[in-house]
Design a protein around this nucleic acid. Structure first.
Lengths: 117, 117
DNA sequence: CGGGATCCGGGGCGATACTG
DNA sequence: CAGTATCGCCCCGGATCCCG
């Protein structure tokens, strides 16, 4: 459950759909780095769980739109909180991580050199 | 980044630590299903990123306590939102998923029998 | 255009055994 | 009590090919 909704691609897809219905190709273009496989899979899971609806228009060329359901929108708060926090603190995290690199915090082996000074 | 903070174990560890400092074994007992490996790994990552502090007491038997930092507490909102949503809607999700099972939504192959009736 | 099927490598993750 | 090191399975996830 948490595995599903906390999933990176799920978070990105849901937050991307917050603006409104989007087509498959729009989603793929909006979400940097997502592969066809992951996008399709994530969309299916979200549809299965009732978080989004899938609407296929019998046109040519074919068009498919995805949109958040009410349940999906109820997740928006949590998801945007995650995404927002990530965006707001990612530089601070990076700094902390770099600092840990120097102090050796969070590493298993001190390894040669760390204890020499 | 999202991969890290959206991680199932991260969410559970952070939300578990919301009450206050806890020992390693307390965390393992509180978080059902977590393995020693994942707990240790998650704690290290969180410490590296500056979300928790690790305090070792030079006693016997040894005692180590983990506690959220201010940065960690700033994540609490998002994390509890996730955990709360998951808890609140997991039954609804389960129902939707079961319903999809019948309608065939979200499955690749209709397979024999699904289209017969 | 939207998406299904398949192949394949990397590594996440869970036991297990051991240490200090 | 609080970890660390190792092994092995499994599945994620990208690349590719193909179809309606």
């Amino acid at each position: 459950m948490l595995d599903r909704i906390g999933d990176k691609w799920t978070v990105l897809v849901v937050s991307t759909l917050s603006a409104g219905a989007l087509r498959y190709s729009d989603l793929q273009a909006s979400i940097a780095g997502i592969s066809q496989r992951m996008l399709t899979q994530t969309l299916k899971h979200l549809e299965r769980d009732g978080l989004i609806t899938r609407t296929a228009y019998p046109e040519v060329p074919p068009r498919v739109e995805y949109e958040l359901t009410d349940l999906g929108r109820s997740l928006l708060g949590a998801v945007t909180a995650m995404a927002g926090w990530a965006a707001a603190h990612h530089s601070e995290i990076a700094r902390n991580r770099a600092a840990s690199e120097l102090t050796g915090v969070g590493r298993g082996k001190p390894s040669a050199g760390a204890s020499a000074g």
